[in-house]
Design a binder for these strands. Structure first.
Length: 190
DNA sequence: GACATGATTGCA
DNA sequence: GCAATCATGTCT
């Protein structure tokens, strides 16, 4: 397995392209000396200023979203209800865009992941949601602002996706037209 | 389809 | 301070 982190330049591409390019890559986390790896299979792009569903809509900057206004390639974690959601900051500085990781497939470190998640990794509901995958991979608010080219949490090259499907985003309550934007990418099951 | 559950936010 | 909000998960 290739464990070289993707270069910083990878994160400089257009946010929507980045969301698509992240499909099939490997999210690798070293937690308590053990390595767990998930293959990213579902992402969503959030385009800051234009996007009513984004936390940084119309350049709204708060303590929570501050990291979005910095350089890309960083982790934006955010607590939703009782869960922690994982985003990757995209866009240039002062361009508050991000990609939400919505789903992964277990690749390596099954025992550790099962212990973290408290469920069998073979279950179809194991890591097919933004709150589930952070739990399975041991990602917490401690990773807020972490740079993804450095240990213990990195993204490295995975395998080519078979087929990418583009749909509108889901789980957004009130965001008017923004919820219809086709900014969700999923790898279709073989 | 209901509700549990916690951090953030905006306003008093 | 406090109440409304929420990019969810799990149960029925």
């Amino acid at each position: 397995m290739n464990s070289n982190p993707l270069p910083y330049s990878f994160y400089k591409q257009d946010t929507i392209h980045l969301a698509k390019a992240l499909i099939g890559t490997h999210l690798m986390h070293t937690v308590a000396g053990e390595i767990v790896v998930g293959r990213i299979i579902e992402t969503e792009a959030y385009l800051g200023v234009l996007d009513k569903a984004c936390h940084s809509y119309s350049n709204k900057q708060t303590k929570r979203t501050a990291i979005l206004f910095g350089p890309p390639g960083r982790v934006y974690t955010y607590t939703m209800h009782t869960h922690c959601l994982l985003n990757i900051v995209a866009g240039k500085e002062d361009q508050p865009e991000a990609v939400l990781i919505r789903g992964v497939k277990p690749v390596f470190g099954f025992e550790k992941m099962e212990a973290l998640r408290g469920m069998k990794a073979t279950s179809t509901t194991f890591s097919n949601g933004p709150g589930k995958l952070t739990k399975a991979l041991g990602i917490t608010m401690n990773h807020y602002g972490h740079f993804l080219c450095e240990d213990p949490l990195i993204i490295c090259e995975g395998s080519e996706p078979t087929r990418i499907e583009v749909t509108n985003r889901i789980g957004i309550g009130k965001a008017d037209q923004a919820k219809h934007y086709p900014w969700r990418f999923i790898e279709k099951e073989i």
